[in-house]
Design a protein around this nucleic acid. Structure first.
Length: 802
RNA sequence: GCGAGUGUGGCGGAAUUGGUAGACGCGCAUGGUUGAGGGCCAUGUGGCUUAUGGCUGUGGGGGUUCGAGUCCCCCCAUUCGCACCA
């Protein structure tokens, strides 16, 4: 028999699958549908890395398994191809991003096919293709029509190096997500999507998503719902109020001063009453220089400036409350103003100490002379008028009632989530289909005029001061709209746009009339299983759920939630245990493994490497083990025998069928492979294998290592491929062992083992156990006080000295 | 600071409901096969030990139990997420 020649076999079967269109998803097939979705890649010039393989290999196994189980499987792939790396590369090399993108996509596709992924490549989407982004623009127009896309002047995180505006989550730690440069705050007129309007729906929808608790929790925290009250504090001497959001209205009697964000509009509104305007302005200027990172991370001392000439009144105590500006209060959360309760909030306490404000105890228990008493989830109210003696929960309810009755405020729900900054000042993104008319108004483009294509620019470097390169495309920029001179919007959409709805397009990727046919959406959706990176659990998953829910509300998609189940693979670290990075030189190129050992080896190794959902270091030695296993399966063919397998082997076979099935469905691919290895080893141990058992092994292994399995299966005389071969079913009656090992222990320590018939009755078993010679030294001269019998497993004698 | 995860041999990692800790793989050791090397095969491989036995052992310390990697309490380390969230 020939040796296992991976590369020849793999090419052969890849061509065969392509010729047979083996992985084509059939719209409206009679079979039950299964939609397996993996996050589509950004086609970088570096090609695939091992992380991609791990991300796709899981659902690759599931997709192949489902086909064998008789499902009509949609397992698509595409490319999230707009974005900065391509644009930066294009600038550096002076090649147009269109060309770079096409090359990269082609390179990626070749690599994906070389690994044997069973994607339906006919459905591939490319977010940079005008026939795709036409519909991204269309969805934007729908959002705009509903008032969910708006422009606002705001301070934005700006990266001076990339010359782009970044979302908060792209500038965490005060550094640009992409280049690591420090972020500065810049005032700009930018686009937002009103995702906050969907906050509650996005939160509620989570209960229908099957996922790890921590994945749901991360989304919950990101949405950040909190219940509380809006309270209006009257200002002394002017007809105005200062509104705050608080979750602890019960502490209102302890509120002794107010703090507002340095950007708070109250400052401008009452500038003429404020007598220390210069000091205020100086503080504002200083705060603006700080990034949000510095404001929240580095500066733990509380600084601020008291407003002179303006103060608020505590509506309950009627005491005057000084107002401060301080940068520990953020304009972006709640109302940008707080009532400070120094007795029970450590930030307010520190501030009160510094600025000498009164500290009032309103919840009994702490020692306010040393620190704020913040352990106040429960407790009893004191110094609080009508709340005295009430517990915290009742006090909150009572206070809220009081506020509503006296028109001082009302209960409200606040969300941490902010609106989605939806713009980039770069070339390689979807143009926003809006024009600015000469009279200052904005107008959406006509749907029929979409796509609004990117103009072909020779020079797509950013314009001055962070304006989009599109501002330089004079011919494209100017037009006549509704009889007026107009200019086009020059910002482009962020990279999250195209990925917010790509899974919908897969159901009908070539449709020129709608983004996807409703009946096809109804057939294929929802996505049955979505796998991707942990890092996308908040942003991408929430953004795409938002778009999907919006489209549902507008009647364009049939179901409210897009995903039924979400998993996330762990990172593959470098062999040194550090995160793989070019600078550390610990990057493993998967294609080298394919060349050296074959794609099947790579696939098996990556799933065998460790728990799928945990990070794991790469090991070159481990790869060899995967290859050895496939070699063993290959050579096992020589041991096919007409004589039946040992009963113990048959039992193991059926147990393996059941466990591999279970493990695959529970993302335990590593143990599934381990069990296939055990089965293979057992066949060698009995020195033969029945044809039936060998074929079963091939079918179980096929989703992991399809090329070698197909080759061996064909060599057995089968003409039909394994793609739709029926998946093995375990026969429970054959899983029961004839004999079992029962552990004999004394006082919990294992002293002997006993091979007995599985159905032996308890009395006989005990008799045998007591007669076991190896137990005698531990029983002699003792009294057995207790006998524990776990059927088919263990006996424990509890003894004590006689 | 808050929340979540993780911690088991030389290494990656296994271990339904508490019931033989270390499956499977790597590495290593010894022997075999081979012109050599590789490959392959067999056996062994947590530690200690006065070895067919005994003791000990799942980050540390307590506890519950006949029995704890698994359950409870306290601590430590590490990773991730959020972060002055009012």
């Amino acid at each position: 028999m020939m040796d296992y020649q991976a590369s020849a076999i793999e090419k052969k079967w890849q061509q065969r699958w392509e010729k047979d269109r083996a992985f084509q998803a059939i719209d409206f097939s009679e079979k039950p549908k299964y939609y397996a979705l993996v996050e589509f890649p950004y086609p970088s010039g570096a090609g695939m890395h091992v992380g991609h393989i791990r991300a796709y290999a899981s659902l690759e196994v599931i997709a192949r398994k489902r086909r064998m189980e008789g499902f009509n499987v949609l397992f698509p792939i595409g490319f999230d191809a707009f974005g900065l790396p391509t644009e930066n590369f294009a600038m550096k090399e002076n090649i147009h991003p269109r060309i770079v993108t096409d090359q990269n996509i082609q390179h990626f596709t070749t690599q994906l096919k070389a690994i044997g992924f069973s994607f339906d490549y006919d459905r591939a989407v490319d977010t940079t293709d005008p026939s795709y982004y036409r519909w991204t623009q269309w969805i934007f127009l729908k959002l705009y029509e509903q008032g969910l896309a708006y422009r606002n002047k705001t301070y934005v995180n700006y990266c001076p190096s990339c010359q782009v505006v970044l979302a908060n989550e792209e500038s965490q730690g005060g550094e640009c997500d992409r280049c690591g440069s420090p972020i500065v705050q810049k005032e700009k007129d930018v686009w937002f999507l009103k995702i906050t309007a969907y906050a509650q729906k996005l939160l509620d929808g989570l209960k229908d998503l099957e996922t790890l608790p921590r994945i749901a929790l991360e989304q919950e925290n990101w949405i950040g719902r909190s219940e509380g009250a809006l309270v209006r504090f009257p200002l002394a001497g002017v007809e105005d109020t200062l509104e705050v959001f608080t979750t602890r209205s019960d502490t209102l009697f302890g509120a002794t001063f107010m703090v507002i964000a340095p950007e708070h509009p109250l400052l401008e509104r009452h500038a003429k009453h404020i007598t220390n305007g210069a000091a205020i302005e100086a503080y504002q200027a200083q705060a603006r220089l700080k990034t949000e990172f510095e404001r929240t991370q580095l500066v733990k001392d509380k600084t601020g400036v008291r407003l002179e000439g303006l103060h608020a009144i505590n509506p309950l105590t009627q005491q005057p409350m000084p107002i401060f500006i301080a940068d520990y209060v953020m304009m972006g959360y709640g109302t940008g103003a707080i009532m400070a309760v120094p007795g029970h909030d450590s930030r307010d306490y520190a501030f009160a100490k510094t600025y000498d404000c009164p500290i009032v105890e309103v919840i009994a228990g702490g020692d306010l002379s040393v620190e704020a008493y913040t352990d106040t989830e429960e407790g009893t109210l004191i110094n609080s008028g009508f709340l005295n003696g009430l517990d915290v929960k009742t006090a909150i309810r009572t206070m809220n009632d009081h506020l509503e009755r006296h028109d001082l405020g009302h209960t409200m729900v606040n969300f941490k989530m902010k609106d989605w900054a939806f713009n980039r000042q770069r070339y390689w993104g979807e143009p926003i289909p809006i024009v600015h008319l000469s009279d200052g108004r904005m107008a959406p483009l006509d749907e029929a005029s979409l796509p609004l294509e990117l103009p072909y620019l020779e020079d797509f470097k950013p314009s001055a001061e962070g304006a989009s390169p599109l501002a330089k495309a004079e011919d494209w920029l100017r037009l006549t709209h509704q009889g007026q001179e107009a200019t086009r919007e020059t910002d482009t959409m962020p990279q999250w746009a195209g990925s917010s709805w790509y899974f919908l397009r897969y159901t009908d990727p070539h449709n020129e009339h709608v983004f996807a046919d409703y009946d096809k959406l109804q057939y294929w959706l929802p996505v049955d299983w979505y796998n991707g990176g942990m890092e996308h659990v908040t942003r991408h998953v929430i953004y795409s759920r938002f778009w999907h829910r919006f489209l549902y509300d507008q009647g364009h998609v049939p179901y409210p939630e897009p995903y039924k189940k979400r998993t996330a693979q762990g990172l593959i670290l470098g062999p040194d245990g550090d995160k793989m990075s070019k600078s550390k030189g610990n990057v493993v190129n998967p294609m080298e493994i394919v060349e050296h050992y074959g794609a099947d080896t790579l696939r098996v190794y990556i799933l065998f490497i460790g728990d799928y959902e945990q990070p794991t270091p790469w090991s070159d030695a481990g790869v060899k083990g995967a290859r050895r296993f496939l070699d063993k399966v290959w050579r096992l063919k020589e041991l096919i025998s007409p004589s039946p397998d040992d009963p113990e082997f048959t039992r193991l076979l059926h147990q393996t069928i059941a466990e591999v099935d279970h493990d695959c469905e529970h993302v335990k691919f590593n143990t599934a492979i381990a069990k296939l290895m055990t089965l293979t080893n057992a066949a060698y141990k009995q020195n033969r294998i029945s044809l039936e058992a060998y074929e079963t092994l091939l079918k179980l292994l096929n989703p992991f290592a399809p090329h070698v399995c197909e080759e061996l299966y064909e060599a057995l005389g089968h003409e039909a491929s394994l793609v739709h071969a029926p998946y093995p079913k375990a026969d429970a009656s054959k899983m029961q062992a004839q004999t079992v090992t029962v552990v004999l222990s004394v006082n919990g320590k294992v002293r002997a083992k006993l091979e007995v018939e599985a159905d032996l009755d308890e009395a006989t078993l005990l008799e045998k156990a007591l007669a076991e010679p190896r137990l005698q030294p531990f029983l002699e001269g003792k009294v057995i006080v207790k006998r524990i019998v776990v059927p088919q497993k263990l006996i424990n004698f509890v003894v004590k000295d006689a």
